[in-house]
Amino acid sequence: MSKPKGWKDLPEGGLIKEAGNAEKYNTGAWRSDRPIWIKENCIQCMFCWVFCPDAAITVDKNGERGEFDYLHCKGCGICALECPSKVKSIVMMSEAEGAKPDALEKAKAAALKMAEEKKAVKA
C-alpha cells in the first residue's frame, strides 16, 4: 500500500488529474464471497453483465462473456442469483474456498446439486 501524500504534493483543490483512476483501486479486496464462472454451462445471455452493480464481468472483443474481473468484483452475488441457465453457470463460494485450485471442480458439483434439488422440489 502506498503512503498517502501530504498537502504539498497533492493537486490543487482536490483535483484528480488522472482520468478513470478508479480502475486502479482494488475494490476486489473488499470481497468475502467469490463468484466462480463455469464456462461450459454459460449460455451467453449477458444477464450477469447487465445486473453487475460494478463492471466486474469482462466481455471480449467478440462480445462474449469472459472471466470475472476479480480486482473489482465485490462478491455481492447478484450475478449468481440472476444466472438463468438450467444448471447455474455462476456459483458463489467463500473467498478462501474460491481461491483454491479445485474451486472450479467444486463449483461444477455445487451447480449440478442445485439443479437436482430444484428439480426435486418441482416434482
Binding site: 498517502p4 501524500k5 498537502w7 497533492l10 483543490g13 482536490g14 483535483l15 484528480i16 488529474k17 482520468a19
Partner: peptide, 17 residues
C-alpha cells in the same frame, strides 16, 4: 486530458486540501 473536480475527500485527504 480529462480530470475530476469535486471528488470526495474524507478523513484521509480533506484537511490537506
Amino acid at each position: 486530458n480529462p480530470v475530476t473536480y469535486g471528488a470526495l475527500h474524507l478523513q484521509d485527504y480533506y484537511i490537506e486540501s
